[in-house]
Design a protein around this nucleic acid. Sequence first.
DNA 1: ACCAGCTAATGAAACGTTTCATACAACCTA
DNA 2: TAGGTTGTATGAAACGTTTCATTAGCTGGT
Lengths: 340, 340
Amino acid sequence: MKPSVPNIRQVAEYAGVSVGTVSNVLNRPDLVAPSTRERVQAAIKELNFVRNDSARQLRAGRSRTLGLVVLDISNPFFTDVARGVEEIANHNGLAVIVCNSDDDTEKESSHLDLLNEMRVQGVLINPIEGSDKKIEMLREHGTPVVLFDRQAASEGECSVAVNDLLGGRQALTHLIDTGHQRVLFLSGPFHLRQVQERHEGAVAAVEASSTPLDLDVMTTPTPNVTTGRSAGDRIAAMPPSTRPTAVFCANDLLALGLLQALTHAGLQVPHDIAIVGYDDIDFAAAAAVPLSSVRQPRQQLGRTGAELLLDETTNPDHEHQQVTFEPELIVRRSSDLQRS
Amino acid sequence: MKPSVPNIRQVAEYAGVSVGTVSNVLNRPDLVAPSTRERVQAAIKELNFVRNDSARQLRAGRSRTLGLVVLDISNPFFTDVARGVEEIANHNGLAVIVCNSDDDTEKESSHLDLLNEMRVQGVLINPIEGSDKKIEMLREHGTPVVLFDRQAASEGECSVAVNDLLGGRQALTHLIDTGHQRVLFLSGPFHLRQVQERHEGAVAAVEASSTPLDLDVMTTPTPNVTTGRSAGDRIAAMPPSTRPTAVFCANDLLALGLLQALTHAGLQVPHDIAIVGYDDIDFAAAAAVPLSSVRQPRQQLGRTGAELLLDETTNPDHEHQQVTFEPELIVRRSSDLQRS
DNA sequence: ACCAGCTAATGAAACGTTTCATACAACCTA
DNA sequence: TAGGTTGTATGAAACGTTTCATTAGCTGGT
């Protein structure tokens, strides 16, 4: 059987109507008399007609897809966000193109080019430092862009974010309160705004405290489980006298890897070293030692982002908004000596 | 600044050449004299021209995207597969549209409709039972479909899968060898082929064994961490005399939830109950008690699937293949009394 | 001086929709 | 009966590319 792809003209012919009428049946059925409508619908079914979206969007000017660019699709934090986006998008008959930038400017750039060529309705992006020009370019072409997990720099754009400064402060305040004096910030690359701000928040908490506290930083190239593990190996190898008594991790993947390496090296969490993660992904609670973590409203982030984007595309008097959610520290065993 | 979207004609005018020449610069630069080529490229840059993909694909007949339909994007197993697919796709200048079916026929169906309208190059799908008609329809429209994580029913289609029967057998053989006599299969919905076959493999192992063994089944509606937790609550509530001594889970999410609930209820893993999961996602090794699990070559699955799909779209004498990988049981503490 | 064989560039047709101005009835109203 | 109104269907233009047959301008060989 040959791949038969009938077009709207053939449907029209088969049903004995004009092309315009078929289009009307498809797009504004109420403009068509019931009897003709049925005839056309029967023809569509009979011929197995499927509308060609390229042609439709060529005419319409825009496609029916949303672009979502994330740093790391393997990170459950981002899949949760993606779910939120998808929920809203599907609800409005839109598809989502998920792109993975892997914290690589080149990749991000080529993804954005592709999305631009596709004339997507809009783009939701967790931008890497320095991708502002590309984003500006998209905007100039009439594609709205909403920043997520990153506060907008100006009021001229939409963003959804979570207060990372506060999150960092919450984590460190907790560690200070539980008596730690040598804390390590296990960081991702500092060009990520999230990382910077979580660190900044941590520093602020230290400065606000009356008790003295050493806050060191160990940087990893990519914040995932594997790098967390090797950081853990290095930390475990430190002499107990200089080793940190608590580690605040830039995300939960690092924290999980760290936890695994420390345990493997025979160190007790939280007795020897306490750990606080970030994101509170589902796996944090299921970890070897249930992980304290700064919770972010993940799906909510995605939903709100998608809603802002849709509003910007459809609402003529859209007003740019910078939405910020508050994080919440969830204390579990990994940082709670009492409980363990 | 108004959203200015120049088209190829304006570029041609600006550069003082014909439309066809601009198109040639874009698609077959070697056919164009260097001096003109440069002039056109300058014009493109100057005007900020971005090719309109709808128009391009309307002419070309097919889009430059691949569709990937997965059961649950929150499951790291699937994101790893997605990474593999993306890797190959991006390498060939294609974008990937990731769709989440959530094990819901309606959702799957509407995703497939959308992909069909988009005239994607091909679809990689982990199909739900009973979606064969829709898939057949896509094929009739000339869209190749490759099944993944599911053996093709006939030789008339491509598929990449992992031998689930073998995986189930490996898990149970291991539990039999370590002396268990009351084992529970903590299952996902049985309409999923994967679930069926893992169970079948487990049964086969029991039948092949000389020692008697009870193999019960507990079914969950969706195999995720949450349902795993509630299953764990139920299991923990059973009297020790009838309670299973080992649980084989249909995937790692169930296993992680289960582990968490059992630990919370004060039961020791593996002493009171041993656990074996499936997929060996990265978090399995990082769990409260490192999880034994049947490992699948996740990224490989995605890569191979994408490659088959591309071959089917581009190679005129493509031959359908049914690729099957072998799983491998990774034993960790959750099922190893010796080690703990 | 003529033709053959190149390389470059051109212009128009085609892809499959949607949209919009128009046409035709049929029905009402004055 | 003329003029408006409403409901339905039509046909052609337009969207922005790619493709392909054609032409134009050279070079070199006879």
